[in-house]
Design a protein around this nucleic acid. Structure first.
Lengths: 322, 322
DNA sequence: TCAAAAGTGTTATCCTTACACCCATGT
DNA sequence: ACATGGGTGTAAGGATAACACTTTTGA
């Protein structure tokens, strides 16, 4: 049924002249760097490893490693003595005019999860909401009025009526105006929209107007936005949060870690049910009394659980008002 | 609340000595190539553009273009005269020992959607299920018995009891045995599992045992599996199918295109509701009577609809039995 | 006794899934 | 008449969201 009329061609004979659709790749040598978004959660704050607070760790790809990911992992672990848990590739792009005009740098960005430890030479941990203050909706929406005003002005400044409508819709959808509701996964879209509206700068080298949040070197803030968006989507269907927690934890600690990443408050009773019903965790038998309430039972992650499908079918039990 | 104890460092002063976490990236020149999975759907068959049926189109990255994606797009459109609609980056990897030991190739793979046209010099369109016969579940599960037998044998051959259980669970989850149900998005996991179980070959250069499906050059079949998985996930929340259709189409044509990509049958009444209720399409006023039934109304995609959230909240209305 | 956090039970609501059925056209 | 595909109504079931309430500790 699929394609009965097509003859089955064998693999191309070796030594055959290459057709135009396969060009030689060796002609254009480029430099390759790996950029890492290393995330930990401490004290209800998602943090990333930076260099001087404005640059993401970056290193050259070491040939000799089995894969790009292996190269990144070993390089980070050697430099920082942090153990990386989950690692995932984010995006690859050609850096514009960083090196010479004929020689461009290919940057391959990665997301890595760990637990906070000493940062080491020249490095420091920074809360990620410092770069994206509008992304933390755990206690109201901090900049919502400022942003809404600025974005409406930007929309009205569009050249044509059609473009105006489009801008209005995009802003409303991305930032949750007009009854659209906040969607925490749209971090990258929001950043790009703010960039288009000149409310945010790409690199501190070019400064001028007052900024929303702290800028980073080159396009690193955009890479971080990509990482946040990816992680916020991921925690909903894969149990990666546990990589950020100690071996034993209370359900509240688990909840607060998810809240920190998602930037929203969750509904406690429903969150607990979600976790316990899926049998993602098991009791250790211990308990912890620290915060002036009834002592909480301690749990550990069940590593034997199937890796896929976790933390709730799709959604998190978000708390209703604020 | 976020990080009161941390001083706010400014951006690094230019000219500062680079800390170890930022290595020079220019030291290791590598070759860079772009690999394209170009998809079209014709006659209820998803097809990809290949070279000699066994190789994906690949070309060198052209510096001078705005971005990697722009470079890929222009190169494909120039070589094939096809217009690419939606384009998305898939994955980047370092090719193992294709070039010399000290000089490795970085391959950046892309997914691109188009409509089928003349393939041109040396190229040909191939139905993708030729490489993955077990992925088409539109008319039953073709190889289910063969596969289940082979995979159970593979599981039992594991060295330890723990590994056996793991293998059994992975196989059951990936292929839908033991009441797990078929999940069409797990194309890549299934391919990798079959590869581990030596039921599939990575490249035709090394042949020997009988194969499941047609092999491709290098790791191109794995790249194709990545593209299929990504596209199958994407059609559920972004209206990308329309890039594969003519400007006007019937709802059945739309449904059959989705079915072709997903490799499963859908429930007609529910599918139609899903589409019409979300106002993704509008009637053109015309109709078409071709297949011996009541004439079908023609629709067109509403381009003014917001790009995000489409084709059903999350899921497709899958038909119950076969 | 009160504050704070840990937990449990139950209901309301919506979305998905399934079933049942009628409509329009060509042969 | 009947086969084929087009098209509508509606009920069952399950998952999410919300509300109300009890329990256990420390200050």
């Amino acid at each position: 049924m699929d394609e009965p009329s097509l003859a089955r061609p064998g693999p191309a004979a070796p030594g055959l002249k290459a057709p135009t659709l396969v060009e030689s790749a060796v002609t254009q040598p480029t430099a390759t760097e790996l950029i890492a978004v290393i995330v930990a959660v401490t004290d209800r704050t998602p943090r990333i490893l930076t260099v001087d607070g404005a640059t993401l760790p970056a290193g050259a790809f070491q040939p000799g490693y089995r894969s790009l990911q292996a190269s990144l992992r070993s390089w980070v672990e050697k430099q920082t003595r942090l153990r990386l848990g989950y690692v995932e590739q984010l995006y690859t792009f050609a850096d514009h005019g960083r090196t010479g005009a004929d020689q461009r740098t290919i940057s391959i960005s990665y997301l890595g999860l760990t637990r906070e430890g000493p940062a080491g030479r020249g490095a420091s941990w920074q809360g990620w909401y410092r770069y994206f203050p509008w992304e933390d909706h755990r206690t109201g929406s901090p900049l919502s009025e400022t942003l809404e005003t600025a974005l409406r002005a930007w929309a009205e400044a569009a050249p044509s009526p059609g473009a105006r409508t489009q801008r209005r819709q995009r802003a409303a959808y991305s930032f949750g105006f007009d009854g659209h509701g906040w969607n925490e996964e749209l971090t990258l879209q929001r950043y790009e929209l703010l960039y288009e509206a000149s409310l945010v700068e790409e690199a501190p080298e070019f400064r001028g107007t007052p900024q929303l949040g702290t800028a980073m070197r080159h396009d690193h803030r955009r890479i971080l936005a990509t990482g946040i968006a990816r992680l916020r989507a991921k925690i909903k269907y894969r149990p990666v949060v546990f990589e950020l927690l100690a071996a034993e934890f209370t359900l509240l600690e688990l909840q607060q870690s998810v809240e920190a990443l998602a930037g929203r408050r969750l509904h406690k009773p429903n969150f607990r049910r979600l976790i316990t019903q899926q049998q993602l965790v098991e009791e250790t038998g211990g308990s912890r009394a620290e915060t002036g309430g009834r002592p909480a039972r301690l749990y550990r992650f069940r590593r034997d659980v199937l890796l896929e499908r976790a933390l709730g079918g799709t959604k998190l039990p978000i708390a209703r008002s604020r």
